[in-house]
């Protein structure tokens, strides 16, 4: 609590103070900490562990940005936000960036005035039902009771899907994933719908995962990515290219293991540009030469982060699928570093 500022504000001294809209980068540097908005908890994507340290796929993006800007991946203040509060938290400047399972949509980009800086996970809304119901397609769900986890674009996609297929359903909106799963397991709803990644994560933790099937239909496009406020393009560039650096690193084979070795210089000019041994891309961003090297050094490249947090070896057990590199037939694609 900044006492004197508060008292000053109350005394009206700040009446005269004009809007000094400093650049976010300067703010972050002056503060020495990055304020990063995350969820209140989604397994694998953002959750505090038993020691209270935030872990997860989205969290890794925050840490990479902090490492690039502040040279310290732990200099992040994680601000938990709910679906309701995330946009105001960002708009009001409480957080510098939001890395929270947020779907890139037209209205959020244009109407709410945010800048999506890329996509770190391509998701889509799916359905899960108990196997013994014998349903094989979401189109057979006429009259079903559907548990929806609210707070995303889920409700809208669902309404559109059932409307366009001309079948009826009964929506049961639930606030948190845990409560939705409880209802689903007790049979209070026939179907549970949310992002397919979350479905897979929840199913992996059921008592008997094989008793539940995920429908083949994916009814929506959910490109999830970090976002920042409109208007501060320099800051948006930093977040965008930090994410791109992680992706490019995987494409070029830069990993946390060989990072220091490659940081000494390689034959591949793009790796050199990325890691700052050739040219000075960092200066264009207002950072130093080794920004990307530090970002990659936190938890490795995009693929490593994926495997560690939500990959097939974790309880979440997600396959790369759409989130494979474009060279492997996925959608993960970074513009070139030059």
């Amino acid at each position: 609590m900044n006492k004197s500022v508060f008292f000053g504000a109350l005394a009206g001294a700040a009446l005269a103070g004009g809007v000094a809209s400093a650049a976010t980068l300067d703010d972050v540097k002056a503060r020495g900490k990055l304020n990063c908005g995350v969820t209140t908890g989604v397994p694998g994507f953002a959750e505090p562990d038993a020691n209270g340290v935030w872990q997860g796929f989205d969290v890794a993006v925050c840490r990479a940005v902090a490492a690039a800007v502040l040279s310290d991946p732990t200099a992040v203040e994680f601000v938990p936000t709910t679906g309701k509060t995330r946009f105001t938290a960002l708009a009001s400047g409480e957080i510098d960036m939001l890395a929270r399972n947020t779907t890139w949509t037209f209205s959020r980009d244009v109407d709410l005035k945010f800048e999506f800086t890329g996509v770190n996970y391509y998701d889509g809304q799916g359905f899960m039902t108990p196997a013994d119901l014998g349903v094989t397609s979401a189109k057979d769900l006429d009259g079903a009771t559907v548990c929806i986890q609210t707070g995303t674009t889920t409700e809208l996609n669902l309404a559109d899907f059932f409307r366009s297929n001309n079948i009826s359903y009964e929506p049961v909106p639930i606030e948190t994933g845990a409560e939705a799963v409880q209802q689903y397991n007790a049979g209070a709803c026939d179907v549970y719908t949310t992002d397919a990644s979350a479905l897979a994560a929840q199913r992996a933790n059921f008592e008997d995962p094989s008793a539940h099937v995920i429908m083949p239909e994916i009814i929506s496009k959910e490109p999830l990515g970090p976002l920042v406020r409109h208007g501060d393009n320099e800051w948006a560039d930093i977040v965008r290219w930090t994410l791109n650096a992680l992706i490019t690193a995987e494409e070029l084979g830069v990993t946390s293991v060989n990072l220091s070795e490659m940081g000494g210089g390689t034959n591949n000019p793009e790796i050199n540009r990325l890691l700052g041994t050739e040219g000075d891309l960092g200066a264009m961003l207002g950072l130093d030469k080794e920004w990307a090297k530090r970002a990659i050094g936190v938890a490795g490249n995009y693929g490593e982060i994926f495997e560690k947090n939500i990959g097939e070896s974790t309880p979440i057990g997600l396959a790369r699928g759409l989130n494979a590199q474009w060279t492997d037939g996925g959608l993960i694609y970074s513009p070139p570093f030059r």
Binding site: T40, E47, P48, P80, G177, A178, Q182, T314
Partner: peptide, 14 residues
């Protein structure tokens, strides 16, 4: 409702 029920370890404990 947040970190405990949504953690990988204690998912859906109630």
């Amino acid at each position: 409702r947040g970190p405990i029920q949504q953690s990988t370890d204690w998912i859906s404990i109630y």
